[in-house]
Simulated assay, not measured.
Amino acid sequence: LVQRFNRALNTMSHGLVMLGPDGRVVVANAEAAHLMSLKSPDALLGRSIHGLLMRGVAGGMLAPKDCRYIEAQLTRALR
């Protein structure tokens, strides 16, 4: 079951990041790592919402002015 989950997760065409209740990455797939210019999904594990958003800004995927709003919305959703 775990192998099938990992295969499905890492062959998705979309980047996927799942956050734990503490707002840190607990699951990430290969496409998410690629979008964030990282070599492995494991490099995303444990990162905070803020860290992810800053990585998105650095990669040109997100405007700095949008970060506070997105971070607030995600943090509220996790509560």
Rank of each mutant, 00 (worst) to 15 (best):
G60N: 02
A77R: 14
F5L: 07
Q73R: 14
S37W: 03
V25W: 08
Q73K: 08
F5P: 01
G59A: 02
K39P: 04
L78M: 14
P41V: 01
P41H: 06
A28G: 15
L16Q: 02
L62Y: 10
M36Y: 09
V26G: 11
Q73W: 10
D66L: 02
G51I: 04
M18H: 08
G15N: 07
L74Y: 06
Q73L: 15
A77Y: 15
V25D: 08
P41S: 01
R7L: 14
A32W: 08
Q73S: 12
L35S: 11
R68V: 03
A58D: 13
P64V: 03
R68Y: 13
R79S: 15
L9D: 02
V2Y: 12
V27P: 09
L45H: 13
S48N: 05
H34I: 06
D66N: 06
G60I: 08
A77C: 13
C67Y: 04
V57T: 00
M54P: 02
M12H: 05
A32C: 14
H14E: 15
M36L: 15
L1M: 13
Q73T: 12
S40H: 15
D66F: 02
L45C: 06
A77I: 09
D42R: 10
E71Y: 11
K39L: 09
H14T: 05
N29L: 05
G56E: 03
S37Y: 01
D66A: 07
L53G: 00
R76C: 11
L44N: 02
N10S: 03
D66Q: 05
V57N: 00
L1N: 05
G23Q: 03
N10T: 05
L53Y: 04
L74K: 05
G51L: 05
D42V: 08
L44E: 04
G20M: 03
L44Y: 08
D22T: 04
S48Y: 13
S13M: 06
L44H: 05
Y69N: 08
S48Q: 01
L44F: 06
C67V: 14
L19W: 05
R79I: 12
G23H: 03
K39S: 15
G56C: 10
G60E: 09
K65Q: 13
V25H: 10
L45W: 07
T11H: 14
H14Q: 12
G51Q: 15
R68E: 14
M36I: 00
V26R: 11
G15L: 07
V17E: 02
P41E: 01
S40W: 06
S37Q: 10
M12K: 00
E31L: 00
L53P: 01
G51M: 04
N6L: 09
A30V: 14
L53K: 01
L9H: 01
A30F: 12
N29P: 10
R76Y: 12
L78I: 13
R55S: 11
F5M: 00
A77H: 15
G60W: 05
Y69K: 04
V17C: 04
E31G: 00
S37E: 10
G20R: 04
P41R: 01
A33N: 07
A77N: 14
G60F: 10
M12A: 15
V27A: 09
P21Y: 03
G46H: 12
V57Y: 07
P21L: 12
M18L: 15
L38K: 13
P21K: 09
E71C: 12
A28H: 11
L74F: 07
L45V: 15
S13W: 04
E31S: 00
A43Y: 10
L38E: 11
R47Q: 11
L1A: 14
N10Y: 09
A30C: 10
